[in-house]
Design a protein around this nucleic acid. Structure first.
Lengths: 207, 207
DNA sequence: TCGTCAACTGGACTCGCGGTACAGCGGGGA
DNA sequence: TCCCCGCTGTACCGCGAGTCCAGTTGACGA
């Protein structure tokens, strides 16, 4: 069963790299088995079809992404206890992370799956949904903490503001993919950070 | 030649609807020709392959989108001459437009094309790039006008801020597609609007 | 009236890819 | 010793994209 895990995750590694690079549809099972140095039969032994592969990839991807956010904001919290500053530090770290992505195409699987959803089954679509709802909850929670200390200078829909983190990253990734540029997502996050600074800055009513 | 145009644009209509609904890959030529009531031969008479169809669709789509933005901000300009207020009105109109989208799946073709780009040729990818660069230029221009009157309260990368309009829409569309909600894009635009209000609000240095 | 050309129809065929089925094989544990 | 897990290898199917091409229909000009 160690071997099983080994081959299985090797398939997932190869597939993930290929999918991030070219998209799911453009990645053939043929090239995955070639890359993983197994037979076609071997592939279908681990995954009953491409859908199962997609689901497994998404699960793994979401898990590591979740872990990354946990680590990021845990570090931010260590550096500053204030919820606003913690958020601002976390976003800065996130922006740096996005800018540092190796060959420049991190390409969030979520968006790509969302746009080809009819090719996938309900399970995959649901995973996708749950991941985004998870992010909403996470950021909404942090924003609530901030709002408890700093009153927003303009009324905003807090759920939507939580979504904005995900949205801005996804949007940025779309842009950098289409434009073949490298740090749109990172810059968009920095802009969002400035937004929060402006929105929650103490009101200048000292007079 | 009237008939040619007729059949051709009928194909494009059917294809566009199907692609917005299910994505490009999931739309078969079979169903397009069935919908347009022509033969497979007829389809290939107008488009040498699926790529040519994609290019034609993108061209048409970008054109109407460009027109929509022109109209929107022209109307906004009529209502208010001040560049900031014009922008704010335009964004409000855009948000309403996004919220009003018929069955709820406007689904910007740009993002979907970006994420499946390896399925397309260089021509399609370039169209995509040019469209986004066009938006950058448009919004960057409007922001410059604003910045000439109102000094931003925080330093920001103006190109990135221009991209944020597209990014926020694209990101919102990804969210609403994945979540099966209906007005994320519209809400994200409204949040961006608030951002601009905060960023360019006259500094409270009356004292 | 005839020829021509554009705009198709219809059918036969190739190819690649996803997916199925199944027989066999090597090695490690009970 | 036997069995089962984790594969290999091969043969086969269906679908959708794309090619080729021969033939039809209608408009329009000489």
């Amino acid at each position: 069963m160690d071997q099983k895990t080994d081959t299985r995750s090797r398939i997932l590694d190869i597939a993930e790299a290929a999918v991030l690079d070219k998209g799911f549809e453009a990645t053939s099972i043929e090239e995955i088995v070639a890359g993983a140095e197994i037979s076609r039969g071997g592939f279908f032994y681990h995954f009953k079809d491409k859908n199962a592969l997609a689901r497994a990839m998404l699960e793994r991807y979401i898990e590591t992404e979740e872990q990354l956010y946990d680590d990021l904001f845990a570090r931010a919290r260590e550096l500053n206890d204030d919820p606003l500053h913690c958020m601002l530090i976390g976003l800065k770290l996130l922006a740096e992370q996005l800018a540092d992505m190796p060959t420049g195409h991190p390409g969030c699987v979520i968006a790509s799956t969302a746009y080809q959803d009819r090719l996938f089954d309900e399970g995959v679509r649901d995973l996708n949904r749950q991941a985004i709802l998870g992010w909403r909850k996470r950021f909404r929670g942090m924003l609530d903490e901030i709002a408890a200390v700093y009153e927003p200078r303009e009324p905003v829909n807090m759920d939507a503001l939580g979504d904005m983190v995900s949205g801005v990253v996804e949007g940025g990734l779309v842009l950098q993919r289409a434009l073949r540029e490298h740090n749109n997502a990172s810059e968009q996050i920095m802009l969002f950070r400035t937004y929060l600074k402006l929105l929650f800055a103490p009101k200048p009513e000292r007079f």
